Simulated scan of single mutants.
Amino acid sequence: MRSVPSRYSLAPAPRPVPTMTRPAPTPVTPFPHAELRLDVARRRYFEHGELPARDTVPPLILASWQRCLAAGADPLRVPETPTASRRRARAVRQANTALLNAAQPDLDRLQQMLGATPVAAVLTDAAGVVAHATTPTRTEVRLLPRLIGVGVDLSETQVGTGTPGLLSTTGLACAVRGAEHFYQSARLMHCAAAPVRDASGRLAGGLSLFSEHGPFAFDAAAIVAAYAASIESRLLRAHPGDVLLVQVAAGPSMLDTPHEGLLGVAGDGRVAWRNGAAAALCGEHATPGLPSPLELRTLLSLVGSAAPRLLNLPNGLGVWVCASFPEHAGAPLPAAAPAMPPPADDGTLEAADARLIDAALADHGGNVSRAARALGISRGRVYRHLRRRHG
Rank of each mutant, 00 (worst) to 15 (best):
P5R: 12
V40F: 04
F31Y: 15
P14I: 06
R37P: 00
P23F: 09
F31W: 13
R22D: 13
R43I: 09
T29H: 15
A11Q: 08
F31R: 12
V28D: 08
V4H: 11
T26P: 03
L36P: 01
V28T: 13
P30G: 03
A34G: 01
L38G: 08
T21Q: 12
V17I: 12
P12N: 06
R15I: 00
R22G: 03
A41E: 02
E35S: 13
R37E: 06
L36T: 12
P25Q: 09
P25F: 03
Y8F: 15
P5C: 02
P25C: 06
T21A: 15
L36E: 14
R42W: 08
P25N: 05
P23S: 11
P32K: 07
S6D: 14
L36I: 06
R15P: 00
S6G: 08
S6C: 08
P30C: 03
P25L: 14
P12V: 06
P25R: 14
H33D: 13
P16R: 14
A11T: 04
R7I: 05
V4N: 06
A24N: 00
P12D: 10
V28R: 14
T26K: 11
R42C: 03
T26F: 01
Y8C: 02
A24G: 01
P23C: 07
A24V: 02
V40L: 02
S9R: 11
L10P: 08
A11S: 09
V4T: 14
P30R: 15
R15S: 07
R44V: 00
A41L: 03
P30H: 10
R43E: 12
H33R: 15
P14H: 05
R15H: 04
A24E: 01
M20E: 13
T19P: 00
A34W: 02
T29M: 13
R22P: 12
F31V: 00
T21V: 14
P18I: 05
P12F: 03
R43W: 05
P23Y: 06
R22K: 10
P27T: 07
R42M: 07
L10D: 13
P25H: 05
T21D: 15
P32A: 10
T29K: 09
A11R: 12
R42P: 01
Y8H: 08
T29R: 15
V28W: 04
L38I: 01
R7G: 01
P27K: 07
S6Y: 05
P32V: 08
R44E: 12
Y8T: 01
P18F: 03
V28A: 14
V4Q: 12
P23K: 05
P32C: 03
